[in-house]
Amino acid sequence: MFYQKNRNVILPILVFPVLILVWELYIKIFQVPDYLLPRPMDLLGSMIRLFQTGEITKHIMITLQEIFVGTGVGIVIGLVLGYIMAKIKVIERLVMPFVVIVQTAPKISLAPLFILWMGLGIESKAALVILVVSFPIMINEVTAIRSIDDNAYNLMKVLKANRWQVFTQLEVPYSLEMLLSGIKLALTQAMTGAVIGEMIGAKAGLGYLLTLGNETYDIRLILNAVILLSMIGLILYILSGLIERKALYWKELDRSVIG
């Protein structure tokens, strides 16, 4: 049945108008002033105006750029480091303690440092995202390579496979699963990294708009930035879920659980 199949989409859509209504009523009943919470239609109007002037697209693009560049580079760095650590025990013994220490510290706390070093442009934010992303990817990659069955390697040896074949035919596919769950996690953290970086020091981006809105008491700007950020987050989440499902067709995915 149509409802059964699309329940996950239909239910939230039904809840949405109720939410809007409650919002509207809340403002009416409690006489909430406009500068604390605008009416839903007001907010929608201001959002449309933001897009009409075209100003907002610049900020969206900058934040997206930071997320994607940072995530891309972070994945590559995390992968390479993770693979090296998984393969060379000595390096793991040397590096892992530091990794654990840095891992437990909130990496976001390095944001002011990065901004001092690299300035207000997108470099400092991309660097922060790289830092945030590469850690989970690296750790997942180490775990993934470690969890490959010894006999799978023995099989490759019996078949006289060369290093490259072991890598592409065995290690890459086996680590894909772990990697994808790492990327999913990384993408959400990447957004946090970019936004917090922007809030601390930037000339553009959605995080910058949050700070700007705060300083100018522009509640509409703040709310619009929040909405856009959640939309970006949602799209990223759905996108990574799709990629995961395509790449891991051979696994039974538990679709009922989110995350």
């Binding site: 069955d149 006999n151 799978a152 099989l155 035919q169 065995l170 596919p173 051979w250």
Partner: peptide, 14 residues
């Protein structure tokens, strides 16, 4: 030579 292991070691995506 061919080797057969106790667990079949099939590649799950193939």
């Amino acid at each position: 030579l061919g080797f057969v292991f106790q667990d079949s070691v099939l590649l799950p995506w193939k």
